[in-house]
Design a protein around this nucleic acid. Structure first.
Lengths: 191, 191, 191, 191
DNA sequence: GATGAATGAGGATTCATTCAT
DNA sequence: AATGAATGAATCCTCATTCAT
């Protein structure tokens, strides 16, 4: 057999794309810059990702699922609603703050016309857990009876904003992570 | 007079850029497509906007100030805090829902590396009114004592999200505009 | 007004394409080589011919009509059938022998998949004169009653072959032009 | 045994090249398409044909000799001149009509710059039989005293043209094969 | 020998910008 | 100022060929 397509190389390219996209902006980044950063030949990139567009979509899915994985790690399935929400919230914020590149690129890909509806669907999938909790919480009367998709989106939007604020004020003493969660909770819970 | 005509052309280019950006995506749009849509020659665009980057920045500021202008029109300066906030909120939502192109392009420009910090600053300026109200409201104990910039951002973020939800569910009976404001108010007010 | 698209430049590009195609082969010739030979910038070629394929088609039509023009110049409309055929024949042979580049490129384009049916149709058009003579000659019983398209093709094929032979034996004393016409005439006439 | 298998693969590649060339055009066909069609790995192609150019030349020679073989099969060595010529003619026409792919590819290779003079020489070799008959026929005064190479070329050219005509008019009732031979015979014989 | 991943030199276009008219 | 042809750097991708397995 010939050299087998290496998972390492695939990852290297994806990682390189992430960091170069973050540095130069997704649309100003030539594929050549990615392959160079990945330490592979220009053509090699295309044996792993047939087009730049496909690469962008794969990266998008990759980031989304990486985030989801982190959020659901050590998830306190038996905590109360607030605890579980807070766990997700803290995980999200921490990830965002410690992964500024990922966050920036994700924000760019989010509005990119190249990201297909399928990718967006796949990207949303891992976040169903949040919706599951919301559904249950609504049934128990803990949360206002809004569409679960709305709760989920609210969570996501506020978390992203919170991360952005934290990133933009590195030296603040304000605990935006806590404030943000308070706003979310007061805004949506019934108590 | 030459001056009058020029202003027309400037607007035509800006309007064309908006609609073509919305249709084809900001980064896939060549300047030639803009000038064509504007009904001017390719070169003419550059007598009004020396570079594409400058055009993007001008458009960004333009959209931001158009929005601000609308929000502050017939502003009930003497209403109570909730009334004034709600007026801004409703104006924002209405504008967003009726101007999907503007909204989409703004979302793309928001994450564009080409938008300078100066433009972002200028773009924020018209929203100081919101901060002014917030400042006052905090002083009177109506709102939680968070940084006013945070209140402002929260307002902005939730409104944008609300608009997006409304746009994505054209036939819903859910009054997302109202829900959104409730969440915002409960989340930030003290009562 | 801006610089107007110059007919000169169009010709220069077409001429350059002809000579570079002849030298390097149609399929091994990059567009950059053509523009360089034409003395224009790489991009300029594309303002005159949107794609290489279109350039090839235009060149094909151009060569075909140049040939037709020459054949029909000073055409002895009132000569007898043999005289008229011979005039066309001699013109063809002379053109082919004195324009080896044109002939070589035409031969390559003839079999190119890029040449559209429309171009082939257009390319055939100028040769209707030959068919006209044939039609008349058949009616008068001078020529065998074969389809006129067949007569025309025969003429063309034999002429091309004759030119090729002459080109390949520059120092021969054999009068292939005459031989060829004799073969054609004996082969198709009735006398 | 290794040797047997190799010969199989060589043929498979040559056959694949033929059919893919016919379908996509010789110059638009990547070697990868050939190897795929042949059911071998991309690299394997190069163990049989060190370069694409060599493959093209081998295919050219192969087609030429396949044709020659067919023409000379069951050749009526003792027939009269006309009979022998006619046998060759019919064989050629029949082959061409039943092997459109071969014919098309041969036509493209004929004008390819990649075909070496040596290959062209080799390709002509099998047709010496025709020249032999011509030589004899001239000596006996049956044929006009033109260079034998010329007779051979004429035969070839007219046959190819005839095949092309037949191929382009599948439903005609005209017997182009017969017409073509008549033209050739009248054009070159002395009777 | 067979495989197919890796390579990197092109190659056809695109496009922001310039500049002659 | 307006025009649009001219420019050529930059870009995505292709493909013949090499080479590790």
């Amino acid at each position: 057999m010939a050299r087998t397509k290496s998972e390492d190389k695939r990852r290297a390219i994806l990682d390189a794309a992430l960091s170069v996209f973050a540095e130069r902006g997704t649309w100003s980044t030539p594929t050549a810059a990615i392959s160079r950063a990945a330490g592979v030949a220009e053509g090699t990139l295309f044996t792993y990702f047939p087009t730049k567009e496909i690469l962008m979509n794969e990266l998008y899915r990759d980031l989304k699922s990486e985030l989801a994985e982190i959020l659901l790690a050590s998830f306190p399935s038996d905590g109360d609603v607030r605890t579980r929400f807070q766990h997700l919230w803290q995980g999200y914020i921490r990830w965002g703050v410690t992964h500024p590149d990922e966050l920036k690129v994700l924000a760019q890909l989010q509005v990119a016309d190249q990201i297909t509806p399928e990718s967006r669907e796949v990207g949303r999938a891992p976040f169903v857990e949040i919706e599951r909790i919301a559904t249950e919480a609504i049934a128990h009367g803990y949360l206002h009876d809004y569409p679960v998709a709305y709760h989920s989106m609210l969570f996501d939007t506020l978390a992203e904003m919170t991360i952005a604020v934290i990133a933009s004020e590195p030296n603040t003493t304000v605990d935006y992570a806590m404030i943000g969660f308070d706003v979310l909770w007061r805004g949506t819970s019934r108590s």
